[in-house]
Design a protein around this nucleic acid. Sequence first.
DNA 1: TTGAAAGCGGTACCAG
DNA 2: CTGGTACCGCTTTCAA
Lengths: 330, 330
Amino acid sequence: MNLKEVARCARVSKITVSRVLNNAPVVKNTTRTRVLKAVQELKYQPDFHARSLAAGKSRSIGVIVSNIENPFFLDIYKAVETGARAKGYEVIMANADYRSERLVASVRLMIGQRVAGLAAVVSEMDPESIEDLNGYGIPVVYCGVGAQRDNITNIRVNYRRGMDKLTDYLRGLGHRRMGVVGNHGMLRPVDERVNVVLESLARYPDMEVQTAVDMDNPEGGRRATRTLLSAHPELTAIVFVNDFMAVGAMREIRERGLRVPEDISVTGFDDVALAQYWYPALTSVHIPRDHIGQRICDALVSDEEKMPAREMVIEPELALRDSTGPAAKS
Amino acid sequence: MNLKEVARCARVSKITVSRVLNNAPVVKNTTRTRVLKAVQELKYQPDFHARSLAAGKSRSIGVIVSNIENPFFLDIYKAVETGARAKGYEVIMANADYRSERLVASVRLMIGQRVAGLAAVVSEMDPESIEDLNGYGIPVVYCGVGAQRDNITNIRVNYRRGMDKLTDYLRGLGHRRMGVVGNHGMLRPVDERVNVVLESLARYPDMEVQTAVDMDNPEGGRRATRTLLSAHPELTAIVFVNDFMAVGAMREIRERGLRVPEDISVTGFDDVALAQYWYPALTSVHIPRDHIGQRICDALVSDEEKMPAREMVIEPELALRDSTGPAAKS
DNA sequence: TTGAAAGCGGTACCAG
DNA sequence: CTGGTACCGCTTTCAA
């Protein structure tokens, strides 16, 4: 089913059909209705590919995330989608799954789709993959924890500051022996965020710190907790790099006959909706996902050519809940 | 950046470049390397649109889900993606958000993308939207709770059977006054699954049943629980149509000073990963999401033209956990 | 083994 | 207000 057939059926030319479909205001009303009727009858759908090929541009933007299962990324994706849809754009999502080759493949795929803009919402990214983002002549935004990148819009979560607030708070509660849990992926040998936590804790020389990494999901959080507590039963708090892993800790801790927060405090990061529904409600650090999503849209589908700020830093706020408390006496 | 430029840079014709890119086995090796070098240097990415336009087909399939935030749908999407990727297909996902017009718009969009196949994983669907699925000449699969549809592959969850098992179990525990919670969306005035639960419970004439509907997320589950318990404090169990809503109940129940399952039993459906991590671990009914995802792939990217069965029924199994127990004495 | 030419299904530009 | 024509970037068909 194509333009020509519709045109024949409506006894007009292709171009007139095209005009009707694109709401060009110059078509006579009777013609328009005749065309629309033909479109209906033939169940015609314009070919997306032909359209963007001919027009030389597409009304879609690409978003690549580290792990779509993690509500943090899902929320950002949804926010971008809402914003983009409002401006008449579609969003193509790709899940890098923390793997470098998937990230590169996704970028390639999206460039192949001739997206109008590209966002990489990945916690970290190896420098080589960065190369791939640039040089396609489309706006690009990178959102993550890592250092600022050149030539692209950066939305950087001040992870360090958030972690400082969190570790200050925990120290104030008397915690001196802590576990730190991050997630491993192929993007980096060890989670960059774990290093940030370690730096934050290093401000206190008397702090004992143990580290573990596992997959970015509740099961990974659970396994890491098991590893940590088996080897270091003296820990009084465990800091997770995100909520999605942190929630997995509770189960393991319960099964060991311990209580949160009386025996062990647990913290997450991101403040996803789940955090408040969890039991005990998870202490976390709030990241405004909706806001980030909006900014991504602004940067990618900038009407009027007015480029927004090339740099934006998110300052996270503590979200204190029930999973943290005074350090247990040892 | 296009074929012609690459061709000029490599001093060959467009078609030769095309052959190299498509791994045609007839290109001389020296030519091939020369072309590949040019591709690298120019950072060339073939135009996806032009390609599928010229080839007249695309290597992508579409999946429409009711609510991508709900882990049930996310799991199915991921399973489809894995299967499709293995066969060299891309998956385009669309979120209908339980809204009829979004469903129709998504179908249109995907047809416009000339997907090779289309899956609608929506719990229910109004008959009008059904019309839209058919008649595009591509394989279509419908996966849901509703009645069988003609002319398309059906993957039907035997929701009724699963619910019968669940209600039998609850009755065996002595429950006689139950709440039923479903989610509302525009696809249907009231959740079709709620009706199934009501039918299941109707087998017992002495059963008192109260109903509530809200959004398909933990907050919706929580609100529905509040509504139900405020008006009917005598309820001893609440049956949710899915896990995602059920987990929201616990918080409300706790805040009312009640315990699960001593005072109130709570059940979900789907058996998503979260169910086991929840506290108390959620009694649910297992739906094999991976299996469903695979079958969707089989039906849509059927190599060799061998059409798989046009009908498949999923028989759910009880997953008993800690959120259910004997009915409280009244 | 390589190339020229004809589309694929639309849109842009210029006439009528 | 409507139509002809030349592309968009790639693949397919047929020749060389």
